[in-house]
């Protein structure tokens, strides 16, 4: 006992960042439970050659199922594979990333296995031989510590919280065959926008704009700031600007949008309504730029600048470029 199994997410046969995070979280938990960690994943032919790096993060074995149908998320096959592996070895927990795939898959596994599921977990520990998980509820207005009536415990970990840390293990790749039955639902395509932006939940830096931006055209200014901040940065938005049709819903941060935990969050022309705070208050550092010194956003911001965003934002992008050029 004490072993942990981790779902390592792929897309088009490439590991996604959340896979490294989930393996890191799984390994830390396995250490507390006195066992090791294994990973499992699905992808098209050729995937097995690209996933041994999970060993760097502590995976002892990496189980891989290959099939052309696994180019995209294959819920039924992933579920069967998970079930097969749980039958081979005694695992105390199964860890999934709380990503679009993991949040769809983990509850299927919970129902199939008749086990408890803790979603969007932000901290993990152990009590005796069982995991204890901390997860936000009520959009982060309360934090619950949860335990599991029976093992294996099913857990999904919030992206960007468990940062990948290297701790090399064998990472032995082992191919497994998943019995093919007709899938109940099939992903026939993935549509991405023109600009394949980093998702707000996965970005290390989020630059969000609100109604104070005045006009959708002004977003070129925020794009420029994102550009100055580098590849880890992406755009976010308040609901006011999503509802106005200025920005796509995929960018909305908040209770009815996405919950983000980046290292750095910029709230620009955003007042800081309770539903917006619910989506970003766990960011490690928050910067607010607003001309109203009384705006509630300043109560959660680590660093606030009171002023006209149309002056501050371009100056900020310029200053970041200037200091970045120095090093």
């Amino acid at each position: 006992m004490g072993r942990v199994l981790v779902y390592a997410e792929t897309r088009h046969g490439e590991l996604r960042a959340v896979a490294r995070e989930a393996v890191t979280a799984g390994r830390d938990l396995a250490e507390e439970l006195g066992g090791g960690v294994d990973a499992f994943l699905l992808g098209p032919p050729g995937t097995a050659d690209r996933v041994a790096e999970l060993g760097q993060y502590g995976a002892e074995r990496v189980f891989v199922a290959e099939d052309p149908a696994f180019e995209a998320y294959a819920a039924d096959a992933a579920l069967r594979m998970c079930e097969d592996l749980l039958g081979r070895d005694a695992y105390s927990a199964v860890v999934f990333p709380a990503s679009a795939q993991g949040k769809d898959l983990a509850p299927r596994a919970a129902a199939r296995l008749d086990r408890g599921l803790a979603t969007e977990v932000v901290a993990l520990g152990a009590d005796g031989d069982g995991p204890i998980a901390t997860r936000p509820m009520y959009a982060g207005k309360a934090m619950a510590r949860v335990s599991f009536a029976e093992l294996p415990a099913l857990i999904s970990v919030r992206p960007n919280v468990f940062r990948p840390r290297e701790r090399p293990a064998a990472g032995a790749v082992e191919r497994v065959v998943v019995a093919s039955e007709p899938a109940r639902q099939r992903v026939t395509g993935i549509e991405t926008g023109d600009r394949v932006a980093l998702d707000v939940t996965e970005a290390n830096i989020v630059v969000s704009g609100g109604r104070g931006m005045k006009d959708p055209e002004n977003w070129s200014m925020l794009e420029d700031l994102v550009d100055a901040l580098g590849d880890d940065a992406t755009l976010g938005a308040s609901r006011a600007v999503v509802d106005a049709g200025w920005r796509p819903h995929a960018e909305q941060v908040g209770q009815t949008g996405k919950v983000v935990s980046p290292s750095l969050y910029f709230a620009i022309g955003i007042s800081g309504a309770i539903q917006h705070l619910a989506g970003m208050r766990t960011a490690k550092t928050i910067v607010a730029i607003n001309r109203d010194a009384e705006a509630p956003i300043f109560s959660v911001a680590d660093f606030g600048v009171v002023g006209d965003l149309f002056e501050v934002v371009p100056a900020l992008a310029a200053e970041i470029r200037r200091v970045s050029a120095e090093v």
Binding site: A144, S147, R281, A293, S299, G304, V305
Partner: peptide, 25 residues
């Protein structure tokens, strides 16, 4: 199958700081 052992209000964020006004900040 999942038991809530405890529920707590989250720790408040440390009081933020307004570091200045306008481009000078």
């Amino acid at each position: 199958k999942l038991r809530i052992a405890s529920l707590e209000e989250p720790p408040g964020r440390a009081e933020g700081e307004i570091i200045g006004e306008g481009t000078e900040a």
